[in-house]
Amino acid sequence: MTNISGRVIHKQFEKEGKTVAFSPETLEKVHTLIRRYPEGYQRSALLPVLHIAQETFGGYLTVDVMDYIAELLGLLPIEVYEVATFYSMYYLEKPGKYVIEVCQTGPCAISGGETILQFLEDSLKIKAGETTPDGLFTLKAVECLGSCGTAPVMQVNSRFYEKLTTEKIILLLEALREEAKIEQNTSDRWEEQFS
């Protein structure tokens, strides 16, 4: 991203050379997705497969993961990097266990979205764009989430939280801290969305 000063912050990434592979079950799911597109157009599956990969391999896309996906879909690695850097839902660096994305666009802004973000910054003691030192929360200020009628809204790991108030945020942070202590419910993973 740029900031008002004009400086662009892009990191040069490195290949670690770690072995990356989907489990046989996930791989089967990936092949089901690939088959949805005509012969020779397996590249079409790139976006959904990257979603699955991101969730499977720690919440972000490392160079190793992207190279694996490139191989899987018969693409050049750069073709995957180009795509992964274009879309805002792919993370290139490890985020916290919970990614909190607070909408800041128009309708949310006039309905208190900015206050909500401020409150989260104060509660978590981090700025938007940062991750808490314990690795639990990443806070992000994001653009329109398509939920303007229930503004202000945010998503936590793609789950919507709407008509937010500071009271609700307090409860939610508490609940997430508790949830983090136990095994996570995986029913809303990308993999499960496709039948």
Partner: peptide
């Protein structure tokens, strides 16, 4: 091995 990365004016 090179391409256009990121989007918009970045």
């Amino acid at each position: 091995v090179h391409g256009v990365l990121y989007r918009g004016d970045t």
